[in-house]
Design a protein around this nucleic acid. Structure first.
Lengths: 246, 246
DNA sequence: GCAAAAGTGTTGGAAATACACCCATGT
DNA sequence: ACATGGGTGTATTTCCAACACTTTTGC
């Protein structure tokens, strides 16, 4: 290192103690996690909401969230909330955005990190014991407490985008599903109608569905074949260049 | 509201005071912002780094960051850092991810929200007065302090993806640029070679470049036409369905 | 006139779209 | 037999990739 570089270092470098002092004493802020938990049932995309904890917002619905403990990893806090509320631990969970305006929470300065989760409603149906916890059709989600409407909208938009580029959707279905199930799912998430033949062609051409040689049961019409998604094969793929397009 | 719904509310609703108490006393965590500031110069993508504040990491480079003040919006903190370091205030800035493992920072529990910024190096060149602040070719960025390498990698990947889907890149160029400039930019960010004719065709077909009827000056070869990006037109676009593809 | 990069079109293949009929099952 | 949705194929169009020569300018 050159001599004058050393000089500058001496002038500007803070000691670890100095920073520790700042971290411990001055600038501490409450941190929370809010989870937007999506499910798919009756061919409808649902989101799990609870009545607001705060009396001020009683009657309003809010996302599932909690403060992060001082010695808890951020992701761990999200998994904790999910486990507490749904009983599920092996689920898709992804961080989405952090909301940190000063006055977003009435109880004081709380910065919240939002997570999006996709779960299979059939698998955890029995874990909803709390009367105040309900699945809501995403089309009817309005007027949430705090800034949760904004958080939900943001998360839903990201989901719509991401589900087209990554195989997330399968987390919302049973392990075995028909192509009709899959198409219904995409139509529900994206709120569009898709051509059935082209939809099938698309998924077959991806070559990531495994034909289980099983049929749907108890349907009042010709049963469809059941498939599962081949995650192993997908992971090995080298993603190809998508091209500039906006 | 039904009677038993009220009952549950009475049992579970916390008072505002109770939450305020939690927010104020128990679960407070230091929050920082780290900015990954990209520039484009000499046909190379650069990132702005500073020598680590901490003596423990002296010699290592780190991202530009600072603690968030208790009464400061998160985004405002990112803009503040950018302004302090580059002198620029009207820049592209976007939140990317929040890193919050317990032991990521040696000074204690610090959760950091990362932001990505794209600035025009020509416009702020004179503001780098600090000897310890330097532009680094992104290809040579290794071994950053703390978890900043991970943060940088994450941010760079997101940039590569996002620049293909949104007109971010123009923030790195002068207001007036040639198609060659633009192509060099994309080749630098994505680290690939593109066909010049197809590249031009693509951008012309988008119909978002305004021909300024000006030519490059002082180039030792045939000068190219200069263009600017039509943000107004872009904003009015209804983004079309991209299609399922993974 | 030479070096260096600007500017320009065509063609073939791949993928997306639009579209209609027969088939298997339950009732 | 009929109602319901499963399953399939083809023609058209659109988009992308590959590819080479002429033009303009500075030196």
């Amino acid at each position: 290192m050159l001599a004058d570089e050393k000089l500058v270092l001496l002038k500007t470098a803070k000691t670890l103690q100095a920073i520790q002092s700042e971290v411990e004493n001055i600038n501490r802020i409450a941190l929370s996690v809010d989870c937007v938990i999506f499910g798919f049932d009756e061919n409808t995309l649902k989101v799990l909401l609870i009545r607001s904890d705060l009396k001020k917002y009683s009657g309003k619905w809010s996302l599932l969230g909690d403060l992060v403990f001082p010695k808890e990893d951020l992701d761990a806090a999200a998994y904790r909330i999910l486990k507490q509320r749904t009983g599920l631990s092996d689920v898709y969970l992804e961080q989405v955005h952090t909301f940190g305006t000063v006055n977003r929470h009435p109880a004081g300065r709380v910065v919240t990190v939002t997570y999006c989760s996709l779960i299979n409603v059939q698998h955890h149906k029995l874990n909803i014991l709390d009367n105040e916890l309900h699945w809501h059709d995403v089309k009817n989600v309005t007027g949430l407490a705090f800034d949760h409407q904004q958080i939900f909208d943001n998360c839903f938009e990201k989901l719509q985008k991401r589900v087209q580029e990554h195989p997330l959707g399968f987390n919302l279905l049973q392990k075995k599903f028909s192509l009709r199930d899959l198409q219904n799912l995409y139509e529900a998430i994206l709120n569009i109608k898709l051509d059935r033949r082209n939809f099938r062609k698309k998924f077959f051409s991806m070559d990531l569905l495994v034909d289980l040689n099983e049929m749907e049961q108890d349907v009042p019409h010709r049963p469809g074949k059941l498939y599962k998604f081949n995650y192993e094969k997908y992971e090995k793929r080298v993603k190809k260049w998508g091209g500039i397009d906006f």
